[in-house]
Write a protein that binds this DNA or RNA. Structure first.
Lengths: 119, 119
DNA sequence: GTTTATATATCGTCCGCTGATATATCGAGA
DNA sequence: TCTCGATATATCAGCGGACGATATATAAAC
């Protein structure tokens, strides 16, 4: 997985961006990422274990996420879990991708693929 | 290439959506699609011949684009060109994808990955 | 007439997605 | 306590799309 940090970067894979979005507001473990993505997309996007753990492995190697040593309250914790968070670079990559998607949505609106927000 | 027409469809590949966007406002031939994508994305997305003609072939088979018999003014034409346009299904697919991306951009904004439009 | 841009097409390689499979533990309820 | 579904992580083989390289040919420009 080659990550381009310059502002003219090719698109991330959809699965990678979904995981970055899931980690954007808080640290999560793998299974928690899976549930958050499913919840946020209303069941449209379902990351199977292959996609999930395969993506996590590649994103760790690319340096856009990292494992966190922090653990939640012991009563809420589970030893099996492995928690992840965005790196500084990972947040930059997520921001760049969000901007790219935003431009693409604007272009789709210009081509009348989206309903106008205001008359 | 499996295209899902229901409203809860998995994402298209980025290259496929770029081509749908290029054809959304007018018919174009392959090389014209390539230039339009490069122009619209300001050089960020460059479809090489493998991606371009491979994607066109798959999209034809999937029924989301079709070859057009229409030709422009003979003086502006070129016999080598093959013109394509969206099918009805292709436009529906493009609209569904644009809506999916719009939701994703909203979610990115909720997670503070995009600057707020209004304070 | 030579070169550059236009135009289409195929091929092999790489790599991410996916479902299947495996393993193990936690929590709830009978 | 036993069982079972949910939780949790991990690997693997197969498929399919992206991509660069390569090929071929014609139009346009100089």
């Amino acid at each position: 997985m080659t990550i381009h940090t310059n502002h003219q970067a090719p698109s991330l894979t959809p699965a990678t961006f979904e995981i970055l979005l899931a980690l954007a507001d808080q640290e999560r473990h793998g299974y928690g990422i899976m549930r958050e993505v499913e919840r946020r997309t209303e069941g449209v996007v379902k990351l199977g274990p292959g996609t999930l753990y395969g993506s996590i492995k590649r994103m760790l190697e690319a340096g856009i996420i990292e494992e966190s040593g922090d653990r939640p309250d012991p009563e809420m914790d589970d030893d099996r879990r492995r928690y992840y968070r965005l790196t500084t670079q990972g947040r930059q990559v997520a921001i760049a991708e969000a901007n790219r998607l935003q431009r693409q949505v604007h272009q789709a609106r210009e081509k009348n693929l989206l309903l106008k927000l205001v008359g």
